[in-house]
Design a protein around this nucleic acid. Structure first.
Length: 569
DNA sequence: GCCGTTTTCGGCCCGACTGTTTTCAGTCG
């Protein structure tokens, strides 16, 4: 067998952790496995190299016992301890962790008392009311579990964009090997449109041929050279966009469908088949400027006009691109729950060509995430000053900004006294607790937070976790209005679990006058690159770079932070 | 199980919410 890579080993460490939990092991022991698994994922050196060099123990959280397990897991794909645990409890029991509200204790009860070993059996038991009389469970939990199944069903067939994108990428690599004659093989469908949740997995390629279904979910549409643009256009969608486009074609004297664009009566072009080698051939024939895939949703954008109407007037916004992003704001270090030192992650940010790194570790109330007490804030600031001095000596145009992700307390207050808040260059205010406040209280709380003269950015406004948790109930429009009024920047959290604020609200934010900031919320070096998902969202929301805070140059953003600070007084 | 030391054991993430409990346990962020 092939040796396992870090991701696979990490997954097995998590399985061991889960099984230890079910066995009632100490939570500290369990967490040791989860910690090690997470730190393994953050590695940049390949596992075989670390093992060969005897460097496993240098990974934080990896001691003697876990190092031994990593080696065996890597080499053999399993471990005697794991195999022993697998004999005790069937794999289906682990699936129960996916239901919100179910943890190790309740799952143990479900397994031992009700003999439940799979999601299917759990649902049957709930429907039959068998949890009601079970000690430690009850009718309310039974209802909650059924609601959990409901949530899972609603998300069924949907994937987060990063997963869908990875899948298509992997499929492309395989296809290129098995079908070397395929040309111009690209992702289409929801992935190309930058949808935060993707239902269709579609690839488009050029060759003589037709649609190939790779498996039940994955579709490859193959086109000849003359129709590639058309195939890509229809493979990308959305249905609403194509409908509008077809209607426009008809109105202009064309007939448009997925196999041809025919000029029936338009005087601008020769009659008959219109060549469609590129997507733009179709847009151009219909008198439209090119419409970026992210905008193809057939919904009103700026000024109530949809993308087709805007394209017809050549008024499509210029969308922000990855290259426009000049720096990283909102990222964590090992001062709180990040994996890297400030020096390492700032260095990695600099190496990627960015001009600044805004550190924003958790504030003191977020104890579970190692939030910074005042003393640690001072230590971090000294370190940032020293690093900045170093950059200056190297004549490097790179700078660390001193920020904090301040918890928004119950009443909307920030998490430090003003004197401490004043020592930061910028402040990201975020909610991490009390998700279940009623709409009015939650809205008031957020408005209070953005009314604070020291708040710079409002972090992940709704707290949603895609496919896992709805955002909390809050009057988004009212909060955006408050952000506009107080000059608070609205975060587009780029973590693919969040992508919060949702792109459907971006136009409203722009209309009210808000700036947006595309923030990776990185907890490790590799997570700096999550930024691209946020860029994709901003593009989908038709946000231009002029309205993105971290598209500002180092000089401009330094001035911006300084000005915000001076206005407080 | 890891870590750090004031080194070989004791601490490690704490507080709120929910439901089941009748004074607290499990789950979550």
């Amino acid at each position: 067998m092939n040796p396992l890579d870090t991701t696979e080993v990490s997954r097995l460490l998590i399985e061991i952790g889960r099984r230890l939990e079910l066995a009632g092991e100490s939570s500290f022991k369990v967490r040791a496995y989860y910690n090690a698994a997470e730190n393994l994922l953050a590695l940049t050196t390949p596992l075989p190299e670390l093992i060969a060099g005897g460097k496993l123990r240098e990974i934080p959280g990896v001691g003697e016992a876990i190092a031994e397990k990593i080696i065996k897991l890597h080499k053999t794909g399993t471990h005697p301890t794991l195999e022993l645990m697998r004999e005790q409890i069937p794999a289906g029991v682990l699936d129960l962790f996916a239901i919100p509200g179910l943890g190790p204790k309740k799952i143990s009860v479900l397994h031992s008392s009700l003999n439940i070993s799979s999601l299917e059996q759990l649902e049957d038991a709930c429907k039959a009311g068998r949890l009601e009389d079970c000690k430690g469970l009850g009718a309310a939990i039974q209802k909650k579990i059924l609601h959990g199944f409901d949530l899972m069903r609603r998300g069924a067939g949907q994937r987060r964009m990063d997963d869908a994108s990875d899948l298509l990428h992997a499929a492309s690599v395989n296809l290129k090997k098995s079908h070397p004659h395929l040309k111009r093989l690209v992702p289409a469908g929801g992935v190309r449109r930058g949808c935060e949740l993707v239902e269709d997995l579609t690839l488009v390629a050029q060759n003589s041929g037709n649609e190939i279904a790779i498996n039940q979910e994955l579709r490859l549409i193959v086109s000849d050279e003359a129709h590639y643009g058309l195939t890509l256009l229809f493979g990308t969608g959305s249905a609403a966009h194509l409908e509008l486009l077809t209607a426009r074609a008809k109105a202009q004297g064309f007939e448009l469908n997925e196999s041809s664009l025919v000029n029936k009566s338009c005087a601008r072009l020769p009659k008959g088949d219109v060549p469609c080698r590129e997507e733009n051939d179709i847009y151009a024939a219909l008198g439209l400027s090119f419409i970026a895939p992210e905008l193809r949703e057939g919904k009103p954008l700026a000024g109530g006009l949809n993308e087709i109407e805007l394209a017809a007037q050549d008024r499509l916004p210029t969308l922000v691109t990855d290259a426009d992003i000049r720096g990283v704001l909102h990222s964590h270090t090992d001062f709180s729950d990040g994996a890297e030192t400030l020096s390492a992650i700032a260095g990695a940010t600099r190496a990627r060509g960015y001009a600044y790194y805004g550190v924003a570790d958790h504030s003191k109330t977020a104890a579970y995430a190692g939030g910074l007490k005042e003393e640690k804030v001072r230590v971090q600031h000294k370190l940032a000053d020293d690093l900045n001095a170093e950059y200056a000596r190297e004549k490097s145009p790179f700078r660390i900004f001193k920020g904090i992700e301040s918890d928004i307390l119950d009443n909307g207050a920030l998490d430090y006294p003003d004197a401490v808040l004043d020592t930061f260059d910028f402040i990201v205010a975020s909610v991490h607790s009390r998700f279940t406040l009623d709409k009015e209280s939650q809205t008031r709380r957020l408005i209070n937070a953005v009314s604070h003269p020291r708040t710079t950015i409002l972090g992940h406004m709704t707290g949603r976790l895609l496919l896992r948790r709805e955002g909390y109930t809050v009057d988004i429009d009212a909060v955006l209005q408050a952000c506009a009024k107080h000059g608070v920047v609205v975060e587009i959290n780029a973590n693919p679990n969040r992508l919060d604020l949702d792109w459907r609200w971006h136009q409203r934010a722009l209309e009210l006058g808000c700036m947006l900031s595309i923030n990776p919320d990185a907890h490790s070096i590799s997570e700096i690159d999550l930024t691209r998902w946020g860029v994709l969202m901003a593009r989908k929301g038709a946000v231009p770079k002029e309205r993105v805070l971290n598209c500002m140059s180092l000089e401009a953003i330094s001035d911006y932070f300084a000005q915000r600070k001076s206005k407080r007084a």
